[in-house]
């Protein structure tokens, strides 16, 4: 049952992502991406990661994508990508590149004997994740907190008004 659900969610995720990358309007694209992230969050839950699933919804869909939407709406971005010349000249090489990369990756995955082994039943309570995160990985958490601080400072510096010569 949960295996069937996993495949259904996987295809929902891929379909939503495909719709996302082909939309002209950035707002529609971001909404499709949120749908894709919700499917991915339930996949995480099925893989025994309830905390990561919750963070996927809260942080990715709830914060990061809303930030994208906020910026798109603040700048008033219209669907403005008009392709020049015949579409297939842009699409063709890309689709060829992507599909060959995809085929190579799938061959690489499925030639490994570990690929056919099943993922066993696994469920990790948030408590165990928290203990590992603030026990063994405490230094990494500190480094990431520094990184978030530097990112905040960087965003502040970039957000300052432009000097006269740059306008």
């Amino acid at each position: 049952m949960s295996a069937l659900l996993f495949y259904i969610l996987g295809f929902i995720m891929l379909a939503a992502t495909l719709l996302c990358i082909t939309r002209r309007n950035p707002v529609h694209a971001v909404i499709y991406l949120v749908a894709s992230f919700f499917a991915l969050a339930i996949m995480f839950y099925l893989l025994g990661a309830p905390l990561v699933a919750a963070f996927e919804v809260i942080v990715y869909a709830g914060a990061i994508m809303v930030l994208f939407l906020f910026i798109i709406m603040m700048l008033g971005l219209a669907p403005q990508e008009t392709p020049e010349g015949p579409g297939w000249k842009r699409w063709g090489p890309l689709v060829l590149l992507s599909s060959s990369l995809m085929i190579c990756t799938l061959m690489l995955i499925f030639q490994d004997p570990a690929a056919s082994k099943e993922i066993g039943a696994f469920y990790l309570a948030p408590q165990a994740v928290g203990e590992a995160l603030f026990g063994r990985y405490a230094l990494a958490v500190e480094v990431i907190s520094f990184q978030l601080l530097f990112a905040t400072i960087g965003a502040y510096m970039l957000g300052k008004p432009l000097s006269k010569g740059d306008q």
């Binding site: 295996a3 891929l14 056919s116 099943e118």
Partner: peptide, 12 residues
């Protein structure tokens, strides 16, 4: 979960 590891990797 009774899915092969390779299928999860293929989705990714």
């Amino acid at each position: 979960m009774m899915i092969p590891f390779g299928h999860a990797l293929a989705f990714a």
